[in-house]
Design a binder for these strands. Structure first.
Length: 1247
RNA sequence: GGGCGCAUAGCUCAGUGGUAGAGCACUGCCUUCACACGGCAGGGGUCGCAGGUUCAAGCCCUGCUGCGCCCA
């Protein structure tokens, strides 16, 4: 390994992956011990087709299994993951045949069996290693020393042994039965290898004349050509139409053969078709059973290629579909074809070649299933094997309880030849097979008629015939179903039938992990064979993963051109290598995402019970995650200096709060990740680690660590380094099973003493409870809350990160204050502050932006920096959220049933929550009043009957004091207060405080905020208290409200109506509350809470509005406000502070002398559909939401809660009109995120 | 025909009765000395539809619609 601590700037997976896999192989880390003191963990890899190529399903399989194996290996297990490949009988034989045809123009029969098999082995030698090599690109930690092949000597020996034992036990037999036959592959198939597909076809009605009668019976059939093989016609015994006919004969058309009419209640459904069914026992499974019941002759009319046999007269040699046409034509000609009707039917096709399969009567080998299935069912019933997800258990049971005997013989050459031998001396000979086609599946070997000969089943060729003493034998030419050898895989790979140490150590295997598509093919059969031959289940757990589909959910198939090659993802690919969709997505070619990103993606998408849609976007996201990990590590290494971590517990170091916090969070992540892995929760574990690394370690700890790392205190520096190394070491090990390469690469470079030479054999972390630090986490909470609050202010105000702010943070809680004070070193850099003053609630800074969190009030003095408009909008939004949530909880609390029946703690929580929300909202409103935008206009202070002041706004655009809009901000619609105030002063150089006018207004503002709560708030609180039954408190609040000017009566029922809230300002030149005529003292004293009265508003703004969007601001506003106030429903008094969205004339108006801006408060709580409906109509929707959404979608609630400032969108959008929607749908939407300062998981993660 | 599963943000998906979430995508600000594969902030939801149970339903029950898979 390299010593360098330098890492490249971005993670480049390709070189790292190749180098590290070689390193692991060289050190032999993948090899499991045959015997060991460690507990065993074993998985056998579902053997891929030996000549196959890695596809995305293999990648998923390998990812999951490698995660399990590496996790267990690191957790102290003797972990075996055993690789191998499957000979894949039909598939491989077909591939080689095709190649043979292509290159030499020969068939396998041209070569003969022996020569052909030699070719297949050569092929296997050439391509057989490919699939294994491809697994290495994935990082699969397979024990290659134990690699196996289903046709190697050991496996073949196991197959023979099983076959013979089953035969000896009577569970393997040979019989002439109707089986599924593929006329193209020319072999028998098991039931499972036939795929059923619904297709549109026809059903023909054919008249069969009754012998010695004028009458005919009309049969309905989907396969007229098989009538040549009919041996009866069946009717339902109780069908009145055909009473008395049973036992008579019909004359089979086209042949003249006479066949009986039989009564069969099982076969015939009198309601279907004509109620008469032709019976063709040799070509239909239902008819076959009928034939057995009625002892009917069975006439085969199709040969192994599904051509009509020589017994079919004029049809002989025709293909079955050709024959169908001929038969129909002849019937037509004879007037026996009554009609043809469209008909849906289920067609069985060959899984391998999609040829329509043909039921065929032939001698085959079968496994008697019932005695094997019973124990396999019981084992699962008893829980000796468990399915994950559990839902597969029922599927398994259903199939196991209904399976038929398993046809295991295949008329192929490539596979395990059946260990049955026939004496060439005394076996019946084939007498008349001379005209069989050369390529007949049962070739003429020694002339033995295998259909009639008696097999001698033996492990090796018999010495002599027990019957005649003959010494010459011929082995059964057929081979076994590929799945037969696969069924033995869990024990044949461990050495069975020999008694090996591996079997003792690793059987039963720990987990069988595979796709759910082979639960019957493979899982069920392994269960049966394992139980029968090993006496125990083959695996304790079956984890069945989903199918991987493309991004659209379509199955990946070459024919669809949507196949994604895992190697392309890992290594990258040129555009010409990609399928059309991918080429479109990556016109320059696909970048090398790397195995780690692919693995992490697959693990993250693996959810139980649904298919995986492989999303390239998510893949890119996880590559970014790799890069993030890389760079976090790079940062750490860059700051290590000469430091070497000595492995001491961090507990012994003088830890800072951030240290303690991240160490504690790490322990939690450790616990959660392990717990998820225990229950196969790969996606959950991956998510936990992702969140920890990114949202906690990178976003917080590393940022906090910079203080000490860049500082002068050497000891503090080293402590931080220790924690960084400790945390990285741990998280790398935690992630190693998911992302083996990048974790190894980084881990090797950490400046520390490594317990092992490789991370893959280092211990998997377990949580260190000594480092779980509740106190640190709760101490960190207010620090984080404060930083996030400050960032919110900054973000919402579009302040550059470079702008340093001064902040005032107030908390009633002494502990919180102490913490913030102590950790101001965290606060300043992360929030971008130049200073912070922490104190108890008290005088608020004038004209500041504010953020209210639980127990925390944050103010940032504007100092000419903050976008006042945006700030007001934000505050209103916050208020609306609080209001919405409070209202919804209040509704609950008002319900006596809820209070009576819900658990007390739930009720209590809700009550506390309401109070908290009310308080929060009160503070917000209070602050909103404080930064009301009218300080420079004392002459506009409203009186009792004052009208809004838009006139003045539009009237005096030229007066400096009224120029509100800083030109530079015009386009954005924001208002820069500093400039605004300066403008008002007409002097850019002076600070606002020096202006007497401003001073005056500010003084009034301060005065007005002393009480903290507005009368409206007191009233609302009263309602809340009332609903909780706290009558005294409620009455006190109502009293205060009244004192403050809230004229409403205390509601008798606790469901008082609430007045609409003020808060919105119409125009910046206007006094704070002029929109409420009944709120005279508004601007200076926020006691006047009344609803805005739209009627008093004059849309004078319109005159100043640009030609382009003339009516909007005004027209919109007025009706909305009106509806809001007039519609305020009585019940809960949802005061639709509604919603007239604010409209800014600035934007649309190119020159707008005076930014005639009009702003109406956003409605906080429009709870009633009726109110909402109307209110919505007036909304000038904001930002992109409005631009994006169809007008009709902007529902009332949204509009009410939405941001009002009309930014760019308003200019773009002509309308901004949001037609009312019928339903006030956004109840929840509006209520959401009420208290969340930051919605992202990364933020949430650290709370 | 029988069985199973799925339907939640633009996309891919978590969410087992008590404040609807993540990643990606999107919008704004920022190329700040780990990372622009980046940082901060923000917007975005009729939880398929309709009933029912419950104080309370995305979650439980019934029915319906659509999609998928398996079996016959």
């Amino acid at each position: 390994m390299t010593d360098t601590t330098e890492l490249s700037k971005a993670y480049e997976p390709t070189e790292v992956e190749a180098r590290l896999y070689a390193f692991w192989l060289e050190r032999d880390y993948f090899r499991a011990a045959a015997t060991s003191d460690k507990p065993a963990f074993s998985i056998v890899l579902p053997p891929p087709n030996v000549t196959g190529s890695l596809h995305i399903g293999h990648a998923l399989t390998a990812t999951i299994q490698d995660i399990l194996t590496r996790w267990k290996r690191m957790s102290g297990f003797n972990a075996l993951w055993l690789p191998g490949t499957d000979h894949a009988g039909i598939a491989t034989q077909m591939v080689v045949e095709k190649e043979l045809k292509k290159t030499e123009g020969k068939s396998r029969h041209d070569l003969g069996r022996e020569a052909f098999l030699k070719r297949v082995w050569e092929w296997k030698g050439k391509y057989g290693a490919r699939i294994g090599e491809q697994h290495r690109f994935l990082g699969a930690s397979l024990d290659w020393s134990r690699e196996r092949f289903t046709m190697d000597d050991q496996s073949s020996a196991a197959v023979r042994e099983v076959f013979v034992r089953l035969y000896e036990e009577g569970l393997m037999y040979r019989a002439q039965k109707l089986i599924n036959w593929c006329p193209s592959c020319r072999t028998a198939l098991s039931d499972l290898e036939v795929e059923h597909e619904e297709k549109n076809g026809s059903i023909w009605h054919i008249r069969y004349p009754i012998k010695d009668s004028d009458r005919t019976l009309t049969v309905a059939t989907t396969r007229p050509e098989t009538m040549l093989g009919d041996t009866a016609v069946a009717i339902h015994p109780e069908d009145e139409r055909y009473l008395g006919l049973a036992g008579q004969l019909v004359v089979l058309p086209l042949t003249g053969r006479e066949i009986p009419i039989v009564a069969d209640a099982e076969l015939v459904d009198p309601k279907f078709g004509t109620g008469v069914v032709k019976v063709t026992p040799a070509h239909d499974f239902n008819d076959y059973q009928t034939g057995l019941r009625h002892k009917l002759p069975m006439v085969s009319i199709l040969d192994e290629a599904a051509r009509m046999t020589k017994d079919t007269g004029k049809y002989a040699g025709m293909d079955r579909f050709e024959a169908r046409k001929a038969v129909l034509a002849d019937l037509q000609e004879q007037g026996l074809l009554e009609k043809e009707e469209p008909h849906k039917l289920s067609i069985g096709t060959c899984q391998r070649c999609t040829t329509v399969v043909e039921p065929r009567l032939s001698p085959q080998w079968f496994v008697k299933i019932e005695p094997l299935a019973r124990p396999a069912i019981e084992a699962v019933e008893q829980g000796r094997t468990k399915f994950v997800p559990e839902t597969w258990t029922n599927t398994y049971f259903h199939w196991m309880r209904n399976i038929h005997d398993w046809c295991v013989s295949r008329q192929l050459w490539w596979g395990h030849q059946i260990p049955a031998y026939y004496c060439t001396s005394c076996s019946p000979r084939q007498g008349d097979d001379t005209d069989l086609p050369l390529d007949a599946p049962t070739v003429k070997v020694g002339g033995v008629d295998f259909a009639r000969a008696e097999p001698i089943v033996a492990r090796t060729t018999p010495e002599s015939c027990p019957k005649c003493g003959g010494k010459s034998f011929i082995q059964d030419p057929d081979v076994l179903d590929t799945w037969f050898s696969s069924a033995l895989w869990p024990f044949s790979t461990l050495g069975w039938p020999r008694d090996t140490a591996e079997l003792k150590t690793f059987y039963p295997t720990s987990v069988m992990e595979t796709g759910h598509d082979i639960i019957f093919f493979w899982v069920a059969r392994m269960m049966m064979m394992g139980l029968h031959f090993m006496g125990d289940v083959p695996f304790r757990t079956v984890y069945l993963h989903a199918m991987v589909r493309d991004e659209k959910g379509e199955k990946m198939a070459k024919t669809k051109g949507n196949v994604i090659d895992p190697l392309d993802i890992i290594l990258g690919a040129k555009p010409e290598q990609l399928n059309a969709t991918l080429k479109n997505k990556f016109p320059q070619g696909m970048p090398a995402f790397g195995a780690d990103a692919l693995r992490f993606t697959l693990a993250s998408l693996t959810q139980q019970g649904r298919d995986i849609k492989l999303s390239m976007d998510r893949l890119a996201g996880y590559k970014a995650f790799c890069n993030k990990l890389w760079n976090a590590s790079r940062f750490a290494l860059m700051n290590m200096g000469e430091y070497q971590y000595d492995g001491r517990s961090p507990k012994e170091l003088p830890l800072t709060l951030a240290d303690r916090w991240i160490l504690s969070r790490l322990q939690r992540a450790t616990t959660e990740a392990s717990a998820s892995l225990e229950v196969y929760g790969f996606a959950e574990a991956a998510s936990t680690l992702y969140q920890f690394l990114w949202a906690e370690l990178c976003d917080w700890y590393i940022e906090l660590a910079k203080g000490s790392l860049y500082g002068e205190d050497a000891a503090a520096k080293d402590t931080t380094r220790a924690v960084l190394v400790y945390a990285l070491d741990r998280v790398l090990r935690l992630m190693h099973p998911f992302m083996p390469f990048i974790t190894e690469e980084i881990w090797q470079k950490l400046p520390m003493t490594r317990p092992t030479e490789s991370i893959m054999i280092a211990p998997y972390p377990t949580p260190d409870t000594a480092l779980v630090d509740e106190a640190a986490e709760s101490e960190m909470a207010p620090v984080i809350a404060a930083i996030e609050g400050l960032r919110t202010i900054r973000g919402e105000s579009n302040l550059s990160p470079a702008t340093k702010l001064k902040a005032v943070v107030q908390s009633p809680d002494a502990r919180t204050r102490e913490l913030l004070e102590r950790w101001r070193g965290y606060l300043l850099p992360l929030a971008g502050l130049s200073d912070v003053q922490v104190g108890p609630p008290g005088p608020k800074p004038p004209q500041a932006a504010a953020f209210m969190a639980t127990n925390l009030e944050i103010y940032v003095p504007l100092a000419g920096l903050v976008d006042l408009d945006a700030e007001r909008d934000r505050l209103r939004k916050e208020m609306a959220r609080s209001e919405q949530e409070a209202a919804s909880i209040l509704r609950k609390l008002e319900n006596p049933n809820f209070v009576a029946k819900a658990p007390p703690d739930v009720v209590e929580k809700d009550r506390a929550r309401v109070l908290e929300l009310k308080e929060r909202k009160a503070k917000l409103e209070d602050h909103l009043q404080r930064i009301a935008p009218e300080p420079s206009m004392p002459e506009n202070l409203p009186t009792e009957n004052s009208t809004p002041t838009e006139e003045s706004e539009s009237a005096s655009p030229s007066e400096p004091a009224q120029v509100k809009v800083a030109p530079s901000k015009e386009d954005k619609g924001g208002v820069d207060l500093g400039r605004e105030l300066k403008g008002e002063m007409g002097d850019e150089g002076r600070v606002p405080e020096e202006d007497p006018q401003v001073q005056d207004a500010l003084a009034k503002l301060r005065e007005g905020t002393k009480e903290g709560l507005s009368p409206t708030d007191h009233h609302d609180l009263g309602v809340a208290y009332m609903s909780m039954g706290l009558v005294d408190d409620a009455m006190r609040e109502f009293g205060k409200a009244k004192e403050g000017g809230d004229a409403r009566e205390a509601p008798a029922d606790g469901a008082a109506s609430k007045p609409a809230r003020t808060g919105g300002k119409k125009a910046k030149t206007q006094a704070a509350a002029p929109d409420a005529s009944e709120a005279p003292e508004m601007p200076a004293a926020p006691k006047a809470p009344k609803a805005p009265k739209a009627s008093t508003e004059k849309p004078t703004v319109a005159t100043a509005a640009p030609v382009k969007a003339p009516a909007k601001p005004a027209a919109k506003k007025a009706p909305a406000a009106k509806s809001a106030s007039t519609q305020a429903p009585a019940k809960k008094g949802a005061a639709p502070n509604a919603a007239a969205g604010k409209a800014s004339a600035k934007k649309g108006a190119p020159a707008k002398a005076a930014g005639a801006k009009s702003s109406v408060k956003k409605g906080a709580a429009v709870k009633k559909a009726a109110a909402a409906k109307k209110a919505a109509g007036g909304k000038a929707s904001a930002k992109k939401g409005a631009a994006k959404k169809a007008a009709g979608k902007a529902s009332a609630k949204k509009s009410a809660a939405k941001k009002a400032p009309v930014k760019k969108a308003a200019a773009k959008k002509a309308g901004g009109r949001a037609p009312a929607k019928k339903k006030a749908s956004a109840k929840k939407a509006a209520a959401k995120k009420v208290t969340r300062a930051k919605p992202s998981a990364r933020a949430k993660a650290r709370r």
